[in-house]
Each structure stands twice: as structure tokens, then as C-alpha cells.
């Protein structure tokens, strides 16, 4: 079995193939960078929600109550929850990007500190928003 898995037959240890995605060690920095793009694309699609809400409001009470029914459904609420997480993440990470544009926070320890701060703050702001919606 192990013989059949050997890549070479020269007797030396098989050399590692790199980069190998199955054993690739992800970094916070690259994941958050991809996350900024992914959340940006998701938010672009999410703008349809705002348009639908505004058009329904302008159209009249019948369409507005129908849209509200869809939003109130558990799946609609799930979509809105996702939208709010993406919005806070993109907002906070965007501020992080703007500070980099000004030349601040480039050293590795600061990059990791602000990275974790963005992740924690996004979750806190999302929780505060939804607690406000539910208890208001």
C-alpha cells in the first residue's frame, strides 16, 4: 500500500508538493482579504433588498405588506441576518483598509490585532442591531 503511494522510486522520501490546499495553513490576513471581496459581492446583491423595500413602500400599502410578510418569514430574517453581518464586516474592515491607505497599521502584530478586532466588533454590532430590532 505504502509502496504504491510512493511518488518516486529512487529510494528517497517523496518531496512535498506545494502549495497543497488540503494541508495549506490559512492565515487571518489572506482570509480577511478574500472575505472583504466576498462580502462586497454579497452586499452588491443585497442592494436588491433595499430597492425592493423602497419600491414597495413607494408603490403602496398592498405591496408593502406583502414584502413585509416575505421579510418576516424565517428565511427572510436569515437573509437579513446574513446581510447585516456582511455589512458590519465590510464597514469595519473597510475602515481598516482606509487606515492602510493612509499608511497606518502595517506591521504584522497590528495587522493581526485590528483583524481580530474587526471580526469581534462585527459580531458585537450585529448582535446589538438585532437586539434593538427585537426589543424595540
Amino acid at each position: 500500500m505504502s509502496d504504491s503511494l510512493k511518488i518516486n522510486n529512487s529510494g528517497s522520501k517523496p518531496r512535498p508538493l506545494s502549495p497543497h490546499l488540503q494541508v495549506y495553513k490559512w492565515q487571518l490576513t489572506s482570509l480577511m482579504s478574500i472575505g472583504h471581496r466576498a462580502s462586497g459581492i454579497a452586499l452588491s446583491l443585497g442592494t436588491f433588498l433595499i430597492v425592493i423595500w423602497l419600491v414597495a413602500l413607494a408603490a403602496g400599502p398592498e405591496l408593502f405588506s406583502y414584502v413585509h410578510q416575505v421579510i418576516s418569514h424565517w428565511f427572510g430574517q436569515f437573509i437579513l441576518l446574513g446581510f447585516s453581518v456582511m455589512l458590519f464586516y465590510h464597514l469595519l474592515n473597510g475602515i481598516r483598509h482606509l487606515s492602510w491607505d493612509l499608511g497606518y497599521g502595517f506591521d504584522i502584530s497590528t495587522v493581526y490585532k485590528t483583524g481580530y478586532a474587526v471580526l469581534v466588533a462585527s459580531l458585537i454590532l450585529t448582535s446589538i442591531t438585532w437586539l434593538t430590532v427585537w426589543f424595540n
Binding site: S44, T47, V51
Partner: peptide, 16 residues
């Protein structure tokens, strides 16, 4: 697409 839905939302706000 973004121009269409952008104008649509602005028009809705103006109509309200």
C-alpha cells in the same frame, strides 16, 4: 444593472 436599480431606488424615495 446597478444604474437601473440605483435610479429605481432614488425614484422611489423621491416619489415617497
Amino acid at each position: 444593472i446597478l444604474a437601473i436599480i440605483g435610479v429605481l431606488s432614488a425614484l422611489s424615495v423621491l416619489r415617497i
